[in-house]
Amino acid sequence: MPSATVQQQMPVASAKVFALLHDYSRRLEWDTLLRDARLTQDHQQASQGATEH
């Protein structure tokens, strides 16, 4: 099965990138592969035990 690796130097700190990746209220602004992005079980933010729906 083909695979690839994409690397991109980010112009901000990794903590800011991580926070954006896990900010589900903003996820659809940049993730063009999704139609919906939300957490299940009334979680308000991504954290251990939270799941995506």
Rank of each mutant, 00 (worst) to 15 (best):
M10R: 06
R26Y: 04
Q45C: 05
Q8Y: 05
Q9M: 15
Q8W: 12
Y24K: 02
V12P: 02
L28H: 04
T32W: 05
D23Y: 03
A13W: 07
T51F: 08
T5N: 14
H22N: 15
A4Y: 10
W30V: 02
S47K: 10
L39H: 03
T5H: 14
K16M: 14
D31V: 00
G49A: 03
H22C: 09
D36K: 10
L34E: 07
S3P: 05
E29R: 07
S14R: 09
M10A: 13
Q9A: 14
R27T: 00
A13N: 08
R26K: 15
H53L: 07
T5I: 12
R35A: 12
T51G: 07
T40P: 01
P2C: 05
Q45Y: 09
H43D: 08
Y24T: 02
T40R: 13
D31T: 02
T32G: 07
D23V: 02
Q45G: 05
D42T: 02
V17L: 15
A37I: 00
W30P: 02
F18C: 08
M1H: 15
H22E: 10
Q45R: 15
E29H: 06
R38I: 00
F18R: 12
D23P: 01
A13L: 11
S3G: 15
A13R: 10
L34T: 00
F18I: 07
Q45L: 05
M10P: 00
Q41Y: 10
Q41S: 13
A19D: 15
Y24F: 09
L20W: 09
A46V: 13
T5C: 11
Q48I: 03
A37Q: 01
R38V: 00
L21D: 09
Q7C: 03
S25G: 01
W30I: 04
R27H: 04
Q48G: 06
T32C: 06
